[in-house]
Design a protein around this nucleic acid. Structure first.
Lengths: 155, 155
DNA sequence: AACATTTTATTGATATATCAAATATATTTG
DNA sequence: CAAATATATTTGATATATCAATAAAATGTT
């Protein structure tokens, strides 16, 4: 007798819960940032923070750290420059690259955002033990490696 | 003495691992679909499947189930119709709505995709126990509820 | 030096996410 | 019934994701 492969309902897969958790958090975090009258997106913040903490990175390295595409990084940086958070200048040793430096506004925004983001994380993880979080991170990395082991990523 | 709030590195937060896991899976799944010469995006698939399994849903309900925005659903459906996966007709009782029905091509694609998606999930979860997955889902839902408890979502 | 190759970054096209505003129809209320 | 309100969906604007193609500079090779 042939057993028909039955695809479970969307809501019953872990990927549904994963997606939901990420989206809930992003929505929540973005609204909290806006509630503090800070005019920056989550993704711009991730890039800004990465540059602040590691000023010498290439855009390629920024992409790798934020898990974003090169093209996205180019455009996010452009918006950060346009919004006066970042300043671009030519790189002395490699003219393909740029130096990226936070402006005063960028630094001020960074300082204001740090506690907001910290609070967002605490709220999101409230009532979850450190042990559970750690176990979950192990599983998440396992999923990532299961999905990337067979083929190279493009960035 | 004042303790300075120190924001951890991006890579050391669970949200980084969450983002990475979701993105790895989506990338992996999308490539596998493409490798089977099926010309549909993951998000279109999610919507197509939701309609196939629950033909009477409103777009609003589809949005809720796929955890997407109304506007995204409108546009995804438009692409599915344009790609000849879906057929639209007017709803008899409520003229604001549409009836959405899979075309032959839509049904064929659905049947072809079911085992592919099934395989993707199995690969992604390989080596992870059912117990761990279950524990993780509980935590993920806790994160979601922590992030949504204070304010209503927009869909 | 001349050429090929690699690396860094940008650009174009299309899909999706988000939020606000607009439409159209349905329902409720006075 | 007419007006107000609610609901279902669409549209516009902007940001991001993805993939392919391109540009420009650096590096390697002969």
């Amino acid at each position: 007798m042939k057993l028909k492969t039955q695809l479970t309902r969307l809501e019953s897969t872990i990927f549904y819960d994963l997606d939901m958790a990420i989206k809930s958090y992003r929505q929540f975090a973005q609204r909290n940032i806006k509630a503090h009258d800070i005019d920056i997106t989550i993704d711009q913040w991730l890039v800004l923070k990465t540059i602040k903490d590691n000023p010498a990175l290439t855009q390629k390295e920024i992409a790798a750290r934020t898990f974003k595409d090169y093209a996205s990084i180019t455009r996010i940086i452009e918006l950060l420059v346009r919004g006066n958070y970042l300043e671009r200048s030519f790189h002395k040793e490699d003219r393909r690259r740029y130096n990226l430096e936070l402006t005063k506004k960028g630094l001020r925004t960074y300082d204001r955002l740090v506690p907001v983001v910290q609070g967002n994380r605490e709220t999101a993880l409230r009532g979850i033990s450190a042990k559970d979080i750690d176990a979950m991170r192990t599983i998440l990395r396992k999923i990532s490696s299961n999905c990337t082991s067979m083929e190279p990523l493009n960035n």
